[in-house]
Simulated assay, not measured.
Amino acid sequence: MAIISCPFCGHRVSDKASSCSNCKGDLTGDPVKLAAVQRDRRLKQSQSLVNQSMLALILFLGGFGVLYWWQPSSGSYNEYVSTAAIAVGFIWYVVTRVRIILLKRSVKNGF
C-alpha cells in the first residue's frame, strides 16, 4: 500500500482508497483523466504563484517610484509607507519565487 496525492485536492491518501477522505473525489476513474486533473491543478497553482510574484514586484517597484519621484521629506508618512512597500514587496517576491522553485521541484520528482 502506497500513499499518493489526491489529484483533486492534493491531500495524501492511500492508493487503495476509492475516494479521497478530504474532498470525496472519485479515485477509481480513468488514470489518464486523473493525471489530467492533477496536471490542471498544478498549472493553476503555478499560475497563481506567478501572478503573486508580479504583484509583489509591482509593490516593490511602486515603493521605489514614490521615493524617487515624490521625494518625501525625512520622517514623513509617505516615506514610511514607501519604505514599508519596498520591504513587503521584496519579501513577498522572494518567498513566492522560492515557492515556485519548490513546486517545480516537486513536479519534477513526481509528488
Rank of each mutant, 00 (worst) to 15 (best):
M1V: 08
A2E: 15
A2S: 12
S5W: 00
F8P: 00
F8A: 02
C9D: 08
C9L: 11
H11L: 07
H11Q: 15
V13C: 04
S14L: 14
K16C: 05
S18N: 12
C20K: 01
S21Q: 13
N22Y: 13
N22F: 11
C23V: 12
C23H: 11
C23T: 15
L27E: 03
L27W: 09
D30L: 03
D30H: 07
P31S: 07
K33N: 07
A36G: 04
Q38L: 08
D40C: 02
R41H: 04
R41N: 10
R42C: 01
L43P: 01
K44I: 10
Q45M: 14
Q47E: 11
V50T: 15
V50Y: 12
N51K: 08
Q52F: 07
L55M: 13
A56M: 10
I58S: 06
I58G: 01
L59A: 10
L59T: 13
L59G: 03
F60E: 02
L61Q: 04
G63A: 05
G65I: 12
V66Y: 05
L67P: 01
L67V: 07
S73N: 05
S73F: 01
G75H: 04
G75K: 06
N78F: 13
N78S: 10
E79T: 09
Y80T: 15
V81W: 15
V81A: 15
S82G: 14
A87M: 14
F90R: 04
F90G: 06
I91Q: 04
I91F: 13
W92A: 05
V94E: 10
V95S: 10
I100S: 02
I101D: 00
V107S: 00
N109K: 05
